[in-house]
Amino acid sequence: KRPMNAFMVWARIHRPALAKANPAANNAEISVQLGLEWNKLSEEQKKPYYDEAQKIKEKHREEFPGW
Rank of each mutant, 00 (worst) to 15 (best):
H14P: 01
A11M: 02
H14G: 02
P16C: 03
N39Y: 02
W67H: 11
A19Q: 15
R61A: 13
S31W: 12
Q54A: 10
K46V: 02
H14N: 08
K47T: 10
P23V: 02
L34V: 01
P16H: 07
Y50G: 03
E43K: 12
K1S: 12
N27Q: 13
I13Q: 09
M8C: 09
L34Y: 02
L18K: 03
I13R: 09
N5R: 02
H14Y: 05
A6Y: 00
Q33P: 00
P23G: 03
I30Y: 01
Q54F: 05
A25E: 04
L36H: 09
W67R: 15
H14C: 03
G66V: 11
M8G: 14
D51Q: 10
I30P: 03
L18R: 03
G66W: 04
I56F: 07
P65E: 10
H60N: 15
P3A: 11
R61Y: 10
P3G: 09
P23I: 00
Y49G: 00
F7V: 02
Y50C: 15
E52I: 05
A25Q: 07
K40P: 00
A19R: 13
A21S: 10
R12M: 11
H14K: 10
Q33D: 04
N5E: 13
E58M: 13
K20H: 03
Q54N: 11
N22Q: 11
W38I: 00
V32P: 02
K40E: 06
A17F: 09
A21H: 04
A6W: 00
A25T: 03
E29V: 03
L34D: 00
A53V: 03
E44H: 15
N5V: 02
L18M: 14
K20I: 15
L41M: 10
N5K: 04
D51A: 09
L18N: 00
A25S: 08
M8L: 08
S31L: 10
E43S: 06
F7S: 02
V32N: 15
K47H: 07
N39K: 13
W38P: 01
K55M: 04
N22P: 02
L41R: 00
G66C: 12
N26G: 09
D51S: 08
K55V: 06
N22I: 05
K20S: 10
A25M: 15
L36C: 10
H14Q: 10
E44Y: 04
V32C: 07
A53R: 03
R61V: 13
H60I: 09
F7Q: 07
S31P: 03
M8A: 10
G66F: 06
L41V: 00
Y50F: 10
E58Q: 09
K55F: 06
Q45C: 07
K1Q: 13
L34S: 01
A6V: 01
L18T: 02
E58P: 08
K47G: 05
H60D: 14
W38L: 01
Q33S: 06
K46D: 00
K59G: 12
A21G: 04
K57Q: 15
G66K: 13
A11D: 11
E29N: 03
N39V: 04
L34M: 06
S31Q: 14
Q54D: 12
E29Q: 11
N26S: 14
G35H: 10
A24R: 04
A17Y: 07
E29W: 08
S31G: 12
A25N: 05
R61F: 13
E44K: 10
N39L: 04
Q54K: 12
W38K: 00
N5T: 10
Q54V: 07
H60P: 10
K57A: 15
D51P: 04
W38E: 02
N22T: 06
Y49M: 00
R12H: 12
S42E: 03
Q54P: 03
A25V: 06
K55S: 10
Y49R: 00
K1Y: 04
Q45M: 01
E43I: 09
E58D: 13
V9S: 05
P16K: 09
N27F: 07
M8V: 06
P16F: 04
D51F: 06
K46Y: 00
F64S: 15
E43Q: 07
M4R: 01
R15V: 02
R15A: 09
E58Y: 04
N5M: 04
P16D: 15
D51T: 09
I56A: 05
S31F: 05
A17H: 08
L36D: 11
N22D: 03
S42G: 05
I30C: 02
L18D: 00
Q54H: 10
